[in-house]
Design a protein around this nucleic acid. Structure first.
Lengths: 151, 151
DNA sequence: GATAATATTGCAACTGGTTGCAATAGCGAC
DNA sequence: GTCGCTATTGCAACCAGTTGCAATATTATC
């Protein structure tokens, strides 16, 4: 179902700003940050405000239209929900990000329900650790993290 | 082992500011925030700076002396490592926070190693969901979240 | 106890993100 | 097409946390 339709059906107004944010998220293949979305929006409408971008992302997230993921780089990233729900395995050595199907946490989820009566809601987790290629390779040069903070 | 000793053994200086931060974390039974630590430190030394608190917490965390947990309230909280490593089950309805032993994630960890060769490092996770008491109780009044953001 | 090397601090400016409020604009009703 | 209601925006100020840099203070050595 289209994002426009979902927004409309929930009684939200289809403002140009919102549509531009939706467009930016959909046009990006990889996970996009709020700042990147803002840059794209500003190309069409230079008077746009970053807080509108944040508010729109919050809304789209609540409606289940976009998915928010924290890769541990100090900012959040988004992708459109049509790509499906999944978690991520983030290697802290080489920075590789692998997808992990949602079902991988089914076991843990059932365990928590049975043992504790707790209904866990795992939302697009980014699990940090060391990938298969990097395990055992000590002190290897890091080729660069896709989303690493620069400083 | 005492925090003073560990700091010293690693070649770090035992400055009054550091000792006050260590003291604040140790004197608090529940999970304490950086701001709360800062308030305590300022009582002994009014010229203290919040960035020193953050830098000290970062250091203590790296040395494994304190544990950092994100309860999803917009700020991080700390407790001293002697309390042991564990995860948390945070109920998004009533706000109750229950402890979950580290071993609860052993199954998932092994699964990731076997299936993906990925060595996950789960660090004091706060798992959001609905607790046993709140499951089924729809639209119950929330008695208050221990660490909920006020706004 | 004084000296020197340098780790640490305080400061100010910055980051990503949030929020209260007045002004604006989308949309349904006419 | 105009009107009015109110959702939404832009703004500015704020929040938690980080960082570069000059000044300061801890510690080892004498």
């Amino acid at each position: 179902m289209s994002c426009h339709k979902v927004l409309k059906e929930h009684g939200y107004r289809l403002t140009p700003q919102r549509l531009m944010v939706v467009d930016a998220v959909h046009s990006m293949d990889r996970h996009i940050s709020a700042e990147e979305i803002f840059d794209r929006v500003r190309k069409s409408y230079p008077y746009a405000n970053i807080s509108t971008v944040y508010r729109t992302l919050e809304l789209l997230k609540e409606l289940g239209l976009v998915v928010e993921t924290d890769f541990g780089e100090g900012r959040l990233r988004y992708h459109h929900a049509e790509k499906g729900h999944h978690h991520h395995l983030v290697c802290r050595v080489c920075g590789e990000v692998a997808e992990l199907p949602e079902s991988a946490l089914d076991g843990l989820q059932e365990k928590l329900v049975h043992e504790r009566g707790f209904e866990a809601e795992f939302k697009h987790l980014a699990i940090s650790g060391v990938c298969s290629k990097c395990r055992g390779k000590v002190r290897k040069v890091r080729p660069g993290h896709p989303y690493r903070r620069s400083h």
